[in-house]
């Protein structure tokens, strides 16, 4: 980060005429505001988690029961949100193919911080039953900063609720900060992402 050229992103995947259309700034890290202010804000963040409605794998089917009368996620302040701009929690539902990962990265980077990632199922941890497949990734934490893993194949809605409550506790205790982690290790994450997403035809940091 010493000189200015290093601050700019190359955006090599884009054609030349599209380069000026996109932002080339790197993600920044953010310091907490003040002890008590941040504590109050974290309380608000923890009690109003908006999930991005993007089902990436079979685990998306486990999110639907959460909205029904039986599990009722609204009472914990969770709500689905149709656009990444407004969402704060990205629930990765199970196995992720390379094609999906590309869209996931794009959506994740469009989310406004502080943002959190919950990964469901053994597929996101070590590949699960698709560990030796040619098109599904093995470890999600090489591509995105994951806050909570919920194990199972697939985890039941009760497990999801437990995971969300754990995430809330972590936010309140200020133990998790995916946005800053992503910004700090940006080069490492980007190298990993680019290693498997072969046709990188989007800006390096799309926000």
């Amino acid at each position: 980060m010493e000189n200015k050229d290093k601050m700019k992103l190359a955006n090599d995947g884009l054609p030349e005429h599209e380069k000026p259309l996109f932002c080339d700034a790197r993600p920044q890290t953010y310091k907490p505001l003040g002890k008590y202010v941040e504590k109050f804000l974290n309380w608000a963040r923890a009690n109003s988690l908006w999930i991005l409605g993007y089902g990436t794998g079979c685990g998306a089917i486990e999110l639907r029961p959460l909205m029904t009368a039986r599990f009722d996620m609204f009472r914990w302040g969770l709500a689905p949100r149709p656009t990444p701009r407004q969402a704060g929690v990205f629930v990765i539902g199970g196995y992720m193919s390379v094609k999906t990962l590309k869209r996931v990265i794009r959506s994740y980077e469009q989310m406004q911080g502080p943002k959190f990632v919950i990964a469901l199922g053994s597929c996101t941890i070590n590949g699960g039953m698709y560990w030796d497949s040619y098109n599904t990734i093995n470890r999600l934490d090489h591509y995105l900063p994951v806050d909570i893993y919920i194990t199972g194949c697939m985890p039941r809605p009760e497990a999801l609720i437990a995971g969300f409550n754990k995430l809330k506790a972590m936010i309140k205790a200020q133990q998790t900060d995916g946005q800053n982690e992503y910004a700090r290790n940006f080069d490492w994450y980007k190298a990993n992402q680019k290693k498997i997403v072969k046709d990188w035809n989007m800006p390096d940091y799309n926000w």
């Binding site: 941890i125 070590n126 560990w131 470890r139 290693k195 498997i196």
Partner: peptide, 14 residues
């Protein structure tokens, strides 16, 4: 095409 070998080479096995 050896999928296992390819996956191990590419996807950072845990």
């Amino acid at each position: 095409f050896d999928t296992k070998e390819y996956a191990e080479k590419t996807y950072f096995p845990r």
